[in-house]
């Protein structure tokens, strides 16, 4: 299967790989997995408590090229967005941007789940509850 140029670009030159301090109250961590293939992804955000803007984002993914590209793209996208804006990023946006084929859609779902889990974790840490439908990362 041929990967799109954008996937190859993110895969061979991933942005924002790394770790943020998990114990910091400003940091939200989302750890998610795709049971289809057993791949795992961790996405972390650092949020400005005043403005709720995501100032920093890091990821680490053990998975296929599409999952790495999806999470790399996700970190690029969430940076500079507010929590509320970041919540609107959906896997279909990622699929479009990276031109993922149908069998690789679950890899983009993983990235969306990771963003939501990271935001959920941050909210839980900071006692933010107004968006009740967000699944809080355990």
């Amino acid at each position: 299967m041929a990967y799109s140029d954008k996937v190859v670009d993110h895969y061979s030159n991933p942005r924002n790989v790394g770790t943020l301090d998990k114990s910091s109250t400003e940091v939200g961590t989302g750890l998610v997995g795709a049971p289809e293939c057993g791949d795992v992804m961790r996405l972390q955000i650092k949020v400005n408590p005043e403005t709720q803007v995501i100032e920093e984002a890091k990821f680490k993914t053990f998975g296929c090229g599409s999952a790495i590209a999806s999470s790399s793209l996700a970190t690029e996208w969430v940076k500079g967005k507010t929590i509320a804006e970041a919540m609107t990023i959906s896997n279909t946006d990622i699929v479009k941007e990276l031109a993922l084929p149908p069998v690789k859609i679950h890899c983009s779902v993983l990235a969306e789940d990771a963003i939501r889990a990271a935001i959920g974790d941050w909210k839980a840490k900071n006692g933010v509850t107004e968006t009740a439908e967000v699944a809080v990362a355990k």
């Binding site: 997995g33 859609i105 990362a137």
Partner: peptide, 16 residues
């Protein structure tokens, strides 16, 4: 895998 949304995640967070 090809579905847009997964049904549910059955895997416990500790395992992840």
């Amino acid at each position: 895998a090809t579905a847009d949304r997964q049904e549910k995640k059955n895997v416990p967070p500790e395992l992840l």
